[in-house]
């Protein structure tokens, strides 16, 4: 039985296959509309989430399956002190596959060690959020046709942003990608990503502080939020925060076919005036997230061969 704990659980070939399936589902949704009939997805969310839980539920419903679950620890037996391993043993007899979000890092791994059904890590604290990375990869491949030969700018909080770390880890396996890391000095990408991932893979990268200095060379701009609580003093935060508000003026400096991605939720780092720009792909990205989750559910349930 296969689980998904980290985006690195899949080889490049397996990821390609998964994205091919997602593309086929996106192109031919009717062919897959009852492939999971009679199957149940348990969404075990120990902390609140809007997009991820609904995206999983939409994915399973689109496949003709049904969903059950809980959306906070208070409404689960965790409030009574039940361990994750006991919960998953019980859920295994109720459902066919489980998507788990937990505030504690490693909880989905514990679940997978005791589960009778495939477990998908739907986010464990600041550790992993593999389906976000799969969504990012699928969106880039889908909108650009390939995951190689591109310049990607990652902008904002590169120190604490797990989606950025995860995306870099996944992308370094593809050829000819240039990385432009755009952040204030306080929020630079950690050394273990710079040295152990980028340098170790021989991936070309540069670090800049101003978005305007780099935006013109990018094929992809991956925005993240700069959070006030990460700064030691208010003055630094105020100095930095406007650097990273993407607005129409900055978009004018960008290539005509650059794509803007964001894991969402967006607060103020992308001005709403950018939403109508055809290069703004973050809402499309959220939609693509449903297709890649559909492909993942079909794959982990071993149903790829059921479509003729």
């Amino acid at each position: 039985m296969r689980h998904l704990m980290s985006p690195m659980d899949f080889s490049v070939e397996e990821l390609d296959k998964l994205m091919d399936l997602a593309a086929d589902i996106e192109a031919n949704p009717d062919r897959y509309s009852s492939i999971c009939q009679g199957k149940k997805l348990a969404t075990c969310f120990y902390e609140p989430s809007t997009r991820t839980r609904l995206s999983f539920e939409a994915a399973m419903l689109n496949l003709g399956g049904s969903v059950l679950g809980f959306s906070s620890a208070d409404s689960s037996s965790a409030a009574k002190g039940e361990s994750v391993s006991d919960t998953i043993r019980v859920i295994s007899s109720y459902a066919d596959i489980c998507a788990m979000r937990h505030p504690k890092e490693g909880a989905p791994l514990v679940a997978s060690n005791h589960s009778g059904i495939p477990v998908i890590n739907a986010g464990d604290g600041g550790h992993q959020h593999p389906t976000q990375t799969l969504t990012d990869l699928y969106t880039i491949r889908s909108l650009r046709g390939s995951l190689s030969n591109l310049t990607i700018g990652l902008c904002g909080d590169l120190k604490f942003g797990r989606t950025v770390h995860s995306l870099i880890n996944a992308l370094v396996r593809y050829p000819n990608i240039n990385y432009v890391l755009i952040s204030p000095d306080e929020l630079r990408v950690p050394s273990y990503i710079r040295d152990d991932t980028l340098k170790a893979a021989g991936a070309p990268f540069k670090e800049v502080e101003r978005l305007e200095d780099a935006i013109g060379e990018l094929d992809i701009l991956y925005m993240t939020r700069v959070q006030r609580e990460r700064f030691f003093n208010e003055e630094d935060y105020l100095r930095m925060k406007d650097f990273y508000v993407l607005n129409k003026d900055k978009m004018e400096l960008a290539k005509d076919d650059m794509l803007v991605l964001h894991p969402l939720p967006r607060v103020n780092e992308i001005s709403v005036e950018v939403d109508s720009d055809p290069r703004a792909a973050y809402f499309t990205q959220a939609k693509k997230g449903v297709y890649i989750r559909m492909a993942l559910i079909v794959t982990l349930l071993g149903l790829e061969g059921s479509i003729c």
């Binding site: 505030p103 890092e105 550790h127």
Partner: peptide, 13 residues
């Protein structure tokens, strides 16, 4: 020693 690790709340692991 990570306070965010699942082992911090499930001590039998």
């Amino acid at each position: 020693k990570n306070p965010r690790c699942i082992t911090s709340i499930e001590q039998e692991l």
